[in-house]
């Protein structure tokens, strides 16, 4: 068991060694990078906005109706919503969601390339297939994830305002007061920094499982599932260490 895990780690590190090499043609790298930004980043904006909007609204409702009491300040709901969105949801939880969407996409795409010999074709041409396929994905997701974090925070706050304006659960004034109370800009940057690590985990680990597929379509499906599970576990573990590290 331990030997197998160490072997997997070794293979992953070797693959990353091959991945982080200077691309043969920078023009081709930027072309692929642009495609991956569109595929992994832009195409994820919708789901990030949707989920963040509803979660922001739900957090606000939960705090207001189930936690806030008469002896608490009226701005508590807005304040808590903002802190949850900034500190955990828009970085860690959103990346867990992205691990499902983007991670499975990456693993199945590269896995299919493997079983249909497209990766072999690249190798025969003399192309470093790891660098050509994986590096643009990592670069695209890592560079685009801060934008997704920002969108997620904004959508969460917009969701909270929806509860104020449409459901009249909280007054907009109290919500605004809470959102502005004791704002620490570092919390936003903490979320961004954490998300950079999580984006790297999602792109690289999913690529590893896709790249090493052997067999047929069933193995591609298994690799996709394994990639999502592994990414999720790694994100949760690294979240503990990063939160501790960045909060002290």
């Amino acid at each position: 068991m331990i030997r197998k895990r160490l072997q997997t780690l070794g293979e992953y590190l070797i693959l990353m060694g091959r991945t982080f090499q200077r691309p043969e043609r920078m023009r081709m790298f930027f072309k692929k990078y642009y495609q991956e930004v569109m595929n992994l980043g832009i195409n994820s904006i919708g789901i990030v906005l949707l989920i963040s909007l509803f979660i922001g609204a739900v957090i606000c409702i939960q705090i207001k109706l189930n936690i806030q009491s008469i002896w608490m300040p009226t701005w508590t709901s807005g304040y808590t919503t903002r802190e949850i969105m900034l500190l955990e949801f828009s970085s860690a939880i959103m990346c867990l969601i992205l691990a499902g969407k983007v991670g499975s996409n990456i693993a199945s795409e590269i896995g299919t390339m493997r079983i249909t010999q497209q990766i072999d074709a690249l190798e025969i041409m003399g192309v470093n297939s790891a660098s050509h396929i994986i590096l643009p994905k990592i670069a695209a997701l890592v560079s685009f994830v801060p934008i997704l974090v920002t969108f997620s925070v904004a959508a969460g706050i917009a969701g909270a305002y929806c509860t104020a304006y449409f459901a009249h659960i909280i007054t907009p004034t109290d919500l605004t007061l809470g959102l502005q109370h004791s704002f620490t800009p570092w919390f936003f940057w903490m979320g961004v920094i954490k998300s950079l690590f999580f984006a790297f985990i999602i792109a690289s680990v999913s690529s590893y499982y896709g790249y090493n597929v052997k067999g047929g379509s069933i193995e591609v499906g298994k690799a996709s599932t394994t990639a999502v599970v592994s990414c999720s576990i790694l994100i949760l573990f690294s979240d503990i260490f990063l939160t501790q590290l960045l909060s002290t």
């Binding site: 249909t116 010999q117 497209q118 072999d120 074709a121 190798e123 025969i124 041409m125």
Partner: peptide, 14 residues
Amino acid sequence: RREMGMLFQGSALF
């Protein structure tokens, strides 16, 4: 390898 061309069984087109 840049002097080689290969046609794969399943074509292996991108």
